[in-house]
Design a protein around this nucleic acid. Structure first.
Lengths: 187, 187
DNA sequence: CGACTCATGTAAGATGTTACATGATTGT
DNA sequence: ACAATCATGTAACATCTTACATGAGTCG
């Protein structure tokens, strides 16, 4: 299970409440790496606190509690990240599954799915690039968290886009027919 | 849940037994898209059979049953793939999570993790390229299944590799120090 | 005939998701 | 005052993983 380590990682950058972490998951981590709702996060924070890996450092207005990692928490996070990648990282990626299953569709349907993927990835990549270019490179603090990951997101999304166009071309070669030619989206 | 659709997709290309599907997951789908062990697959095949989406088309030697998709199964698969991507595809990707958490490590530790990632992705990409180049392009049948997905795997892995090198360079810029410089792996 | 792979399953426990629930504060 | 957002939780259900279990063929 990676959720506790995801939480340790976010808290290691900056203390936060369960609520704030939930938002963070929605915006960033959950979109590309590991999703979790508040109903997983709150109990997990309590477990981490029991294990002494995080602690409540502040109690705010609406019964909110701000958590921070302890020294042990930091050590645990480091251990986990530096550990041999334990066999292999478990992957569960629905978009990629859809790519696999494309082979099971007839060419016209596959083209349609690819067209939507290309559209979608183009939009996503553009959004991520904007995010990168808008934010002045704050190397530390919450804003800078995932700066490296953001760049990965851009590259991975762009790769998916390029692939979708390439796959469409392959299909066109193998099964030519009358169909709208998709246009490459300029980067 | 995507497992039933993953199974439908594999069976849509070619009928197979639960055992064969399990192997297929280990080799291909499970490594990059959606993992599942035989203890998930067998019960799911039974459920799919009850729902009339697959059927047993042959009974073999050791009590083995070969399943094939029915017309309804094919329709369901098509529906699922062409459906609006239902909000967003759920992603659970431990390697990417590790990339996110890198920001929580000190530069030397982060460099070490990146070094291993670069090594790992270089090896993976090379293996995938070999796979692609060895297999004569059989467009149909089991061998060709995931041919498009294979290309995606290559591109995604290569992107991860390039990113790891880029990230290392960024760290070196921001925190110069005495450390072994990683070499780019030629493709 | 012994070891290995093929082939399928059940059960317990861990994990994750959805629905339900509640109350405090802020903005209009 | 009303709506929206902040903030946390429980319970039921679905799902996934790990361990356990069994037997039939195949190869040397």
């Amino acid at each position: 299970m990676s959720l506790p380590h995801a939480l340790l990682g976010l808290l290691a950058v900056e203390p936060a409440s369960g609520y704030a972490l939930t938002k963070e998951f929605e915006r960033t981590v959950g979109r590309y790496a590991w999703q979790a709702g508040h109903t997983s996060i709150y109990p997990e924070l309590n477990r981490l606190a029991e294990r002494g890996l995080v602690e409540v450092v502040e109690e705010g207005p609406r019964g909110s509690r701000t958590y921070a990692v302890t020294a042990e928490g930091r050590a645990e996070l480091r251990r986990w990240l530096l550990l041999p990648p334990e066999g292999r990282g478990r992957v569960r990626n629905e978009p990629v599954l859809r790519m696999f299953l494309l082979s099971a569709l007839d060419p016209d349907d596959a083209r349609e799915v690819l067209r939507r993927m290309a559209e979608h990835t183009a939009r996503d990549a553009e959004q991520l690039r904007e995010l990168r270019d808008r934010a002045p490179d704050a190397l530390d603090g919450r804003a800078g968290f995932g700066r490296l990951a953001l760049e990965y997101g851009i590259r991975a999304t762009q790769a998916a886009h390029d692939w979708a166009l390439w796959a469409t071309a392959r299909l066109d070669e193998a099964h030519p027919g009358s169909h709208p030619a998709p246009e490459a989206t300029p980067r």
